[in-house]
Design a protein around this nucleic acid. Structure first.
Lengths: 233, 233
DNA sequence: CGCCTTCTTTACGATCCGATGACGAGAACC
DNA sequence: GGTTCTCGTCATCGGATCGTAAAGAAGGCG
């Protein structure tokens, strides 16, 4: 589940750093340098999350937060330079939901996002409908989130958690290419700092279990240079 | 069983604290900062429970409670700053069902929710239909909530309360994976702060009593890395 | 066609996780 | 008061699963 994130930040460098870090995690990023632009983006792109720098040059961050809050219930996270609690409290009072302080570790920020994503997910997961991955009557393959399993012809397929999560992530919704970093950040709960090729290995293991001909995968497709995509049929 | 909770509270910070705590317990939270918003949410999202702060800025909490009560029989819990009994009594007279006083322990609040959840459950429990866990004629296994027992070939199986609750939770409805934390929070009335592996132990004890071959469980299935699931047959 | 990059496949050792049985404390029951 | 149940803890075991590394295929580009 990739998030659409709006970054409200007037310093170009920081904005770029944030954008790169977030995109690396597989999120989509929209930027705004001031409050009016931010409000416009909230209306038009409807982000899942807003990051607001409290030290916006001209207009201050509090106003920005309040204005956004008037439009929407989107979670707002404050990025604050000052470490004292006063302005954080003020920000929370203005309507923010959480905060990180600068200089912040990108790790810390992405960890928060993972937590947020997890929270969003668990609130919908149980009721999410099953996804049909292969509709061939003699090879019917269904992902059932409520059961926490994948059914081949009605029988539980023995996937490991990692394989299951990979598949579930690719199927949310199917048809998107997901980069390795994106998969790493959403499938590996506590982040992953090793070689991203680990994704390939698990994809392979997944393929041997769900593909008709694992040598010529048709469900979990490789998109060279980009990542993997799930093509149900 | 996750609850949809409406938090009526005008202080943003407290509202955020409440929301995070409730979401952590797996509930879904809607917020309202004043009475009109609260009434709107009651109508639109139909929460299972309403938390009302008695000290709402402009309109007082009593009015809010009365208005909500005119719309619905939803359980209302008062969050009160004052500790003297007068306003609590007034709140209860206005139609609230329970109360907690500030500064309250989050633990205390979630404990009340567990109690409420239990009460809601037992009020519907009596009418809930029996669940057939094994339909084999020579090993017929039935969970009868109205009797509060499990029948093997018509005879009461001697389960401990914990085992019974575990089974009942897994059977509501059958087929879902339930994580250990989820089971801990719904089966253990007063919460549980020890090692979550305690679930394994009780699952095992339950299995020795209801499985045909406890060594190869088929009813209460382990979903590695995720939790347990009940697969009736 | 040759080279470089990206992906696939396999094998292996370390680690994780669930199952199991034993034990002691305390609750419930007699 | 004593006995029986039930619960939570713990240590141990064995298989499942994971991450790594390294070699082999396939694709892309000049």
């Amino acid at each position: 589940m990739a998030l659409q994130v709006l970054v409200v930040e007037d310093d170009d460098r920081i904005r770029t750093v944030l954008r790169l870090a977030l995109e690396d995690e597989g999120h989509q990023v929209t930027e705004a340098a001031d409050t009016p632009a931010a409000l416009d983006r909230v209306r038009t792109v409807m982000p899942d999350l807003v990051l607001v720098d409290l030290m916006l040059g001209e207009i201050d961050g509090y106003t920005c937060i309040r204005e956004i809050r008037r439009l929407s219930d989107i979670p707002i996270v404050i990025v604050s330079a000052r470490s004292d609690t006063h302005d954080i409290v003020a920000g929370l009072e203005a309507g923010a939901d959480d905060y990180v302080t600068k200089p912040f570790q990108v790790k810390e920020l992405t960890a928060r996002l993972r937590a947020l994503r997890r929270r969003l997910r668990t609130s919908t997961e149980a009721t999410e409908p099953d996804v049909v991955l292969d509709s061939d009557p003699v090879r019917r393959l269904v992902l059932s989130r409520s059961r926490g399993s994948v059914l081949l012809q009605g029988a539980d397929l023995k996937l490991t958690v990692t394989e299951y999560r990979l598949l579930a992530e690719l199927a949310r919704p199917p048809g998107r290419v997901l980069s390795r970093p994106a998969l790493l950040s959403s499938v590996w709960e506590h982040g992953f700092y090793g070689d991203e090729r680990i994704v390939d290995v698990h994809i392979r293991r997944l393929r041997t279990k769900i593909e008709r001909d694992p040598g010529r995968p048709q469900l979990v497709v490789t998109v060279r240079g980009m990542g993997y995509r799930l093509d149900p049929r």
